[in-house]
Design a protein around this nucleic acid. Structure first.
Length: 539
RNA sequence: GCGCCCGUAACUCAGCUGGAUAGAGUACCUUCCUCCUAAGAAGGGAGUCGGACGUUCGAAUCGCCUCGGGCGCGCCA
């Protein structure tokens, strides 16, 4: 059991001895920010003073009379009623052994037997992934890594909107480029795609089938299918570079096949009314503030209709929860989709939507507008080449998804050494270097010689990693991992500065410190992996 | 007009299930490499936590109001 858990139990028992039962969840142990406040502190006395009908400080005094002093050096009452714990060194040292033994599993949560489907990116296969997709990809993938590590059963899913008319526009655009490349005058339609990648696709098709399409009455169906495949291939390639993989690619066409939409309409009929000749879904019966048209007067479906089918399809595959990672401009969509699922008897919580706020890319003080249509968008590929995948992923994982963010291109492009990702990676590389040089010295897994402030601070922080993982998973908040990484790097650098690790005249201490290096290196690597950033051994 | 997100140091942002002196990076100013990676460390200046009221032992954090910025509110996708 870790130190924090045992402190909680200790306090709970003390409350019992005073005749009050307090839930473990109501006892909060926090790391003291200031060393003068000890190693750990609790506000339990203040929080529960009403139960005992005594002033906070009196409760604190009564509590500490009842506390078990095992492993505790000193207990103090401070301020308005905080109880500060000063731990004995040997109650903090055992974490080193635990980390080294568990290795890359340290921090993993228990299997939760809870299946979650996370859908993210889902960019239309009509052009290269651009930089606007990057944040969603980085955060979506990090959420998956963190939740998986915390013990959830995760399926990563990409939804391909291959049924809409954007695929027609794609085919027409490719056809125009195809003709151009063959020397036949043609123009990309106004509402088509004007990006460079379309020319690439057209060339690829020429390589495959030559000019044979010119003789066909209607080459559009072929171009739709082949063009989409080629676009998807590029997207998969870019995602791979970005260290993102998907378990499932779902096709809208497939989801809609076999009359699935008609069946869904039939299922929903009690919630549908007609207005003129359109069909409207009464989502206001649930969470929405407005009813939604699902079948237009002309008989076409609105985009909402197949999306309902898709979400019901996902639920029917046995997931306990769906998570959609969407751009913040989709927030109006949350309640209508939840409402539709509730018509199927699912709880509102069955679907959670993670909104990703817009990123502004600033270069030379001017915002760069990324547009797929105009062709002058910045692609994910080129920015990864310039900035590097590590920096991109770290940067995006650094901020809460809900926060608007500015991406300073100049900083990212010109001064990569200023990027905080290097601070963390450098800490890792330093440790690796020391471990390499001290590899002939046996590690003292008991870490019995650790006592310096920077050593003890590091120990406490390492021990907290599993809690941080759990919290980040529960909140679907990768930035909490990134914050942890940053702070851990700081503690490692402080330790490095204060404590000379390899000292051939003092092998005992070296041995303990090397074990601490190993444990710190392991936790740093585990944490970086959760946000998809490499932990280099040399820099 | 209605709804969602945001407003914290010069800049970019943490901190928000209420807790001790509000933090980090960048930028600026001092120090520190005969010694395991100076892509580092130590220290300094920098704040009416947008504003007002309320809830209470205690509010950056919760509630209401208000101001400012972004985004939604289609028989578009």
């Amino acid at each position: 059991m870790d130190v924090i858990e045992s402190l909680k139990l200790n306090i709970q028992k003390a409350f019992s001895a005073l005749g009050v039962e307090v839930s473990l969840n109501d006892i909060v142990i926090e790391h003291s920010k200031d060393a003068a406040h000890g190693d750990y502190a609790t506000n339990a006395a203040m929080k529960n003073c009403r139960l005992l009908k005594m002033p906070p400080v009196a409760v604190a005094n009564a509590l500490i009379e009842k506390l078990d002093r095992n492993g505790i050096e000193k207990i103090e009452i401070a301020g308005p009623g905080f109880i500060n714990f000063f731990m004995k060194n040997d109650s903090l040292q055992p974490i080193v052994k635990k980390i080294i033994n568990e290795g890359e599993s340290f921090g993993k949560g228990e299997k939760k037997n809870f299946k979650v489907n996370v859908e993210f990116v889902s960019a239309n296969p009509t052009g290269d992934l651009h930089v606007g997709h990057a944040r969603g990809a980085a955060i979506g993938d990090s959420i998956c890594r963190i939740m998986e590590f915390a013990g959830y059963d995760i399926t990563r899913e990409y939804y391909i909107n291959d049924a809409g008319n954007q695929i027609d526009h794609l085919a027409e655009s490719i056809l125009a480029r195809y003709k151009e490349l063959l020397g036949i005058p043609a123009e990309v339609p106004e509402d088509g795609y004007h990006g460079q990648d379309i020319i690439y696709v057209a060339q690829k098709i020429i390589d495959e089938v030559g000019d044979s399409l010119l003789n066909q009455d209607n080459p559009i169906p072929f171009l739709k299918e082949r063009g989409m495949e080629l676009e998807l291939d590029k997207i998969r390639e870019d995602l791979k570079t970005f260290r993102v993989h998907f378990d499932v690619f779902s096709s809208e066409l497939k989801v809609r096949s076999n009359g699935a939409v008609e069946k869904e309409l039939e299922f929903l009929k009690d919630h549908i009314y007609e207005e003129d000749t359109a069909k409207v879904l009464r989502t206001t019966d649930f969470l929405d503030d407005k009813d939604r048209v699902i079948v237009k007067s002309n008989g076409d479906y609105t985009y909402f209709m197949p999306d309902i089918v898709y979400h019901v399809n996902k639920m029917s595959r046995g997931f306990d929860q769906l998570v959609d990672v969407l751009g913040a401009d989709h927030h109006g969509y949350i309640n209508r989709m939840k409402s539709a699922l509730m018509m199927h008897g699912y709880k509102a919580e069955a679907l959670e939507i993670e909104l990703i706020q817009m990123v502004r890319f600033i270069k030379d003080g001017v915002e760069m507008k990324a547009s797929k249509r105009t062709g002058d968008s910045i692609t994910l590929r080129e920015i990864c080449e310039d900035v590097g995948v590590d920096a991109m992923r770290y940067f995006f994982a650094m901020r809460a998804a809900s926060a608007h963010m500015d991406f300073d291109m100049n900083l990212a492009l010109e001064q990569s050494s200023n990027n905080p990702v290097y601070y963390a990676q450098y800490a890792h590389a330093r440790l690796c270097s020391i471990l390499e040089q001290g590899k002939d010295i046996a590690l003292d897994k008991e870490a019995s010689k650790l006592e310096k402030p920077s050593e003890m601070a590091l120990l406490k922080f390492l021990a907290n990693f599993p809690n941080v993982v759990n919290d980040a998973a529960k909140e679907r908040a990768p930035y909490k991992i990134t914050n942890y990484i940053h702070e851990l790097a700081g503690l490692i650098h402080e330790f490095y500065t204060e404590c000379r690790v390899i000292d051939r005249d003092n092998i005992d201490v070296s041995s303990s410190r090397l074990a601490l290096c190993k444990a710190s290196e392991q936790v740093m690597k585990n944490a970086l992996n959760l946000i998809g950033v490499n932990a280099p051994e040399h820099m």
